[in-house]
Every structure is written in structure tokens, then in C-alpha cells.
């Protein structure tokens, strides 16, 4: 068991969480695209985002026991299972995304498994969010905004990269053949939302509430 104090960072009771897109959607309500929408944009709000840092030797076993996911050691890859994913960010850094509300329990469980080893777990759930793009033109919209090669030949399913996107940064991931995910900073959410609306206009873009 680790000596680090872990506490519940989620407020309990009546405090309602707001998605980073709360005002964006109010200010830019989106009419459904005429005809078939080329791009469908949906937020996946309030997910649990944990940054794990350490060497693979330290993290591997404990992470597998707690999450059921194997730590990906190939650069720019990710392992996902159902609604959980674990992505390589750097040789000593991974992004663990889990269903909403599991920050506290997961961190506690991980620290229990990993003990006093040399590692860090940081809850970044409040600082970033996931935006999902699908539809036949999703890739075209992304291609407008990044210098990263998104061709299926170099960007297969299960790949995720941290790169430049629309003059800022984002993590671009491809969990499966149909969907693209952007992991973006909360403070850039409104900017990127409007950027994507503008970039997607020519294909017909619509948003989907979950």
C-alpha cells in the first residue's frame, strides 16, 4: 500500500458538472445538417482521465490487475477494451481513460497495487475532454487542421498521437474504423468547437448529444 494520500476530488451532492462545451452549444446551436451529414461530432463528457508516469516495469502488472488493460509499449499506440483505453504518450507517460466517476476508486486501487514504487498518477479529468468525430468526411475535417498524416495506411485503428491541431495541440486517436477521437484541453474547447464547425461546414456537420 502506498503512503500517498488520495482523496475524492469529485464534488458530491447537488453540484452539477458542466461540460467544457456547455456555452459553446448554447452560443452556437447547430441545426441538423441538410441531407446526409458528412461529419457527426459528439462530446464524450466527464470521463475519467488519469496520467500515469513511471517505467513500464513499475506500472505494467499493477495497471493490468486494476484496469484489465495491458500497458502499450509501442510508441503512439493504445489498448482499449469496451469503454476503457490506455494510450502511450511518451516512453514514461500514459493516458488512462475510464468511464465517468472512477477517478478516486481507480487511483486508490492503483496505488494499492503499485505500492511505494517510483511513479506518479495525476487526475486530469477536469482539464481535458474527448470529442468524437464520425461520418464519411470525419478524416477530411481533421486533415485540414493538422500536419499529421491521417491516411489509413499510416494511421491504422488503435493508433493515437499527440500533435499540432488547429494552431494548438490535441491528441488524435482512432479507436476503431468508424470513429476518430480528439482529446483536447478544456480551455481550448470552445475555440476548437467553433473551428470544427467552420471546417466541417462544407461537408455538412451535425452534433450529437449523448
Amino acid at each position: 500500500m502506498s503512503k500517498v494520500e488520495v482523496f475524492q476530488q469529485q464534488p458530491s451532492g447537488a453540484v452539477a458538472a458542466e461540460s467544457p462545451f456547455h456555452f459553446s452549444r448554447q452560443r452556437n446551436p447547430l441545426a441538423p445538417a441538410k441531407g446526409e451529414a458528412g461529419v457527426i461530432m459528439a462530446e464524450r463528457p466527464f470521463l475519467t482521465h488519469l496520467i500515469l508516469r513511471g517505467t513500464p516495469e513499475v506500472l505494467l502488472g499493477g495497471v493490468r490487475n486494476v484496469t484489465g488493460l495491458t500497458l502499450p509499449q509501442t510508441p503512439c499506440s493504445m489498448n482499449s477494451k469496451e469503454d476503457k483505453s490506455l494510450q502511450w504518450l511518451a516512453p514514461d507517460e500514459w493516458l488512462l481513460i475510464l468511464p465517468p466517476g472512477s477517478e478516486f476508486s481507480t487511483e486508490k486501487a492503483l496505488r494499492g497495487e503499485l505500492g511505494d514504487g517510483s511513479y506518479a498518477i495525476v487526475n486530469v479529468s477536469g482539464g481535458q475532454t474527448v470529442l468524437e468525430l464520425s461520418g464519411p468526411n470525419a478524416r477530411e475535417v481533421l486533415m485540414k487542421s493538422t500536419s499529421c498524416d491521417l491516411h489509413p495506411r499510416t494511421f491504422p485503428e488503435g493508433r493515437g498521437v499527440s500533435t499540432v491541431f488547429a494552431k494548438t495541440g490535441a491528441i488524435i486517436r482512432r479507436p476503431d474504423a468508424q470513429r476518430w477521437e480528439l482529446v483536447i484541453r478544456r480551455s481550448f474547447a470552445d475555440y476548437l468547437y467553433r473551428w470544427l464547425l467552420s471546417a466541417g461546414a462544407e461537408y455538412g456537420i451535425t452534433t450529437q448529444e449523448r
Binding site: S147, V161, T163
Partner: peptide, 12 residues
């Protein structure tokens, strides 16, 4: 050398 792939100058 860490990502083990080529990326554009803008990322660096």
C-alpha cells in the same frame, strides 16, 4: 527517437 517516427517541423 522516442516516438520512433517522422513528424513535421511544427511539432518541434
Amino acid at each position: 527517437p522516442y516516438c520512433n517516427e517522422r513528424r513535421s517541423e511544427e511539432e518541434f
